[in-house]
Design a protein around this nucleic acid. Sequence first.
DNA 1: TAATTTACGTAATTTTATTACACATCAAAG
DNA 2: CTTTGATGTGTAATAAAATTACGTAAATTA
Lengths: 285, 285
Amino acid sequence: MHSQNLINVITDALPGLNKSEAKVARVILSDPDAATQSSIATLAKKASVSEPSVNRFCKRFDAAGFPDFKLKLAKSLASGIRFVNRNVDPDDDVGSYTPKIIDSTINTLALVRDKISHPRVNQVVDCLIQAKRIYFFGLGASGSVARDAENKFFRFNLPVSSHDDVLMQRMLASTGGTGDVFFIISHTGRTKEVVEVAEIARSNGSTVIGLTAADSPLAHMSSVTLDVDVPENTDEYMPMASRIVHLVILDVLATGVTLRRGPDFLPHLEKIKNSLKPTRYRSES
Amino acid sequence: MHSQNLINVITDALPGLNKSEAKVARVILSDPDAATQSSIATLAKKASVSEPSVNRFCKRFDAAGFPDFKLKLAKSLASGIRFVNRNVDPDDDVGSYTPKIIDSTINTLALVRDKISHPRVNQVVDCLIQAKRIYFFGLGASGSVARDAENKFFRFNLPVSSHDDVLMQRMLASTGGTGDVFFIISHTGRTKEVVEVAEIARSNGSTVIGLTAADSPLAHMSSVTLDVDVPENTDEYMPMASRIVHLVILDVLATGVTLRRGPDFLPHLEKIKNSLKPTRYRSES
DNA sequence: TAATTTACGTAATTTTATTACACATCAAAG
DNA sequence: CTTTGATGTGTAATAAAATTACGTAAATTA
């Protein structure tokens, strides 16, 4: 749906290119940002080729012409470069690290938006709708994600609970059965305890939904996996982006469930919302 | 600093624009993507102004000329930020509501990135660094944010805890004193219980940090407020974006604290990270 | 309402991109 | 080795797009 990064496309195509096209490619790749700002003449001179060669190069990569190509290149850079170069430096000040962290979260979300499998989401919504009972499990940072999920899904009038205690998780998994859904959240998908819990749940006939990394042990153990590949490169020491992604995916799922329930369900949500009113100071608006 | 989204810049500048510049602005805002693909002539005609007017418009927004402007616009669009708030329709399917929700989260984050007060962040980091003890308080959805914060800040070797029990919060607030920091998270900032807890804490000489809406009762009661104005319009029935924003701001604060601690502190974080290794299945990479 | 500034458009100019075509290079077949 | 056809590349002409210079209209101020 969203186009792949142009830089990668060009890099991949490089070996199969003509002499002059390859020259152009190399010049562009060596400084893509400069390329977006030069005219066709400048670029042609830099690559020691003629202007029409540059033009042909552009058309080869599905652009209408040179300006269109520059546009596409610029877009690729905007979504790509931030990723690469936006790590927090030890000597950053507030003004630098604040936008960097927020940007990297934004980028991750944009990535997930373009990569997430819609049929899979649908499938999970199905599971959740049909569930007799839903358990949200997570450890560490994913524990609070699970808790948040509980806070969201209890509104659907379903028996929902969240647990971050491994023993509790094991016990619940072993007493569950058909119709029970165990929604397990784990960034790595490699935590032994969690995978074991998934195994126990499966062996008792429960459905296990894994919100976790693709191809991880947990992913393989789950009935349905919502896989999220979050490059946690921004930050070496604490989970950051993955939590956020998990939460947003849970928002998506909750929305999916709400929509499936149809408009008749809205009054119920309204009721919950109103129940909080007396706890609040009146808004001046 | 200069990462400000062009679309927002134009929107903000709109009221102060000349007649024809405003016309151009409106045409661009109504379909920014189309604008990046049109020639200056097309755009001028669409806006019923002359070509030089479009050109002047571009220069006003710090572009070298029309092509440069288009480039910048394209970059703004590509950086993951979709314009206008796209609300979920009752008859949306997975393919529609999934990107809508993610986009609206992205939008909100971009807004916060551009609006958040850096000095204020710095001030809060100061407080947290100097704290003898930190309590994270929240109710409902903010409860899990508080819990997440605990999970993040315990790594700094500080006595940290999180609480979502009102009575517990009251008791802790009343037994605190100078050097204690109460970090209170609340989307609305109008929950009576929470504001009262803040009041109690303040009256005992503790520092209260409010992560909440500007101008809310809680904001007024806090020693320092990190105010976040999140238009929770996307969704009537559940808090969505605000949670995420709170979490990301906590990421920012945690980063601030880490950087202040300096490089000597990294081994400690490394140690915590390594402590989890034995709980994991080995990665095949 | 006259003076002055600011806003806007017309038309000329310049820059930039594309097309048409011719020459060159290379590979395979004679 | 040619010859032939195919593909690749550049030159020059043409078209498109953007910018500039300049003049007139509108708005603002005194």
